[in-house]
């Protein structure tokens, strides 16, 4: 990893994998994101948090190419130093060449395909090349057979990480909710990404499933993959993230370590500014998460 030469705020060290500069997204008259800039460092888990409707998923969709931003620049710097301007790439190219993979808030699995097939579809581009764009593969050349073997080994590796090996031959739609979440994450990992974007991975999980997810995320990070995640569950955010960016009404209001963000008066105002019962719950959850 070469040291980053870009100008950065002094608190941030290590090299940058994703740099979002002056990102704006307009839907008709609505400014969903307004001049939003942040950086994510290689090997870190960066969390993007904020109240409902703050524009977190919109930022995600801009980064992964599902939306074309109205203004701004999104730069992805790969481990070998190559840079990609994500706002200029098509959505599938962002995964294929820029090596950014994502999951969705509402799980999008291929429910009629088996768990193993889901992971093989994710290795489409590698297998396509190995099969000589189908033609050589139809002839049954050994290079393709070897690639298929390798892809199944890779799938097995991630199935083991996600604790899904026993369910490998079941249809993905048959899995319980928590397992579907994990499968979606390892499916994204099978594309071989450098940056993994997770949209609310812990939503709707019970505490046990949540713990299993944390283990999975840690093991992904130990592989050297950087993670960018949107999360509502403060216990997850505070426990696993290295760096937190807070978004409100499409604008960044805080950026820093979890401890810094937790004590930032602006964040407290955004989350706790209104007096109602929900706020107490949020505090309780946060304290609990902090204690663990």
């Amino acid at each position: 990893m070469t040291p980053e030469t870009n100008t950065m705020t002094p608190t941030i060290t290590g090299d940058t994998i994703l740099k979002v500069e002056h990102l704006s997204m307009k839907f008709g008259g609505l400014m969903a994101i307004n001049d939003f800039s942040f950086e994510a460092r290689r090997g870190d888990i960066t969390a993007l948090i904020g109240p409902n409707g703050a524009g977190k998923t919109t930022v995600f969709n801009c980064i992964t190419g599902f939306y074309k931003p109205t203004m701004g620049m999104i730069t992805l710097r790969q481990g070998d130093g190559r840079e990609h301007l994500l706002e200029r790439l098509k959505d599938f190219e962002i995964t294929k060449s820029a090596k950014v993979a994502r999951t969705f808030q509402n799980i999008r699995l291929f429910s009629g395909l088996t768990v193993l097939e889901n992971l093989l579809v994710a290795q489409h581009n590698v297998l396509m090349k190995a099969s000589g764009y189908t033609i050589l593969g139809l002839l049954g050349l050994p290079t393709y057979k070897k690639a298929v073997g390798a892809s199944i080994e890779k799938a097995k590796y991630w199935l083991d990480k996600a604790d899904l090996t026993d369910r490998a031959d079941d249809p993905a739609g048959d899995l319980p909710y928590g397992a579907q979440r994990r499968l979606e994450i390892v499916r994204a990992m099978c594309t071989g990404p450098e940056l993994l974007c997770l949209d609310e991975p812990a939503a709707g999980l019970n505490p046990r499933e949540s713990a299993a997810l944390n283990t999975l995320l840690h093991s992904i990070r130990s592989e050297g993959v950087s993670i960018l995640l949107i999360e509502h569950d403060m216990s997850v955010v505070m426990e696993i993230s290295d760096h937190v960016v807070v978004l409100e009404y499409g604008q960044k209001i805080s950026d820093g370590t979890p401890d810094h963000v937790k004590n930032d008066p602006k964040v407290i105002a955004a989350y706790l500014g209104v007096e109602d019962d929900e706020v107490d719950e949020v505090i309780a959850v946060e304290l609990e998460g902090g204690d663990r």
Partner: peptide, 10 residues
């Protein structure tokens, strides 16, 4: 099964 998921997988 899911076109959007396909695009997200490159």
């Amino acid at each position: 099964e899911d076109e959007i998921a396909c695009r997200s997988l490159g």
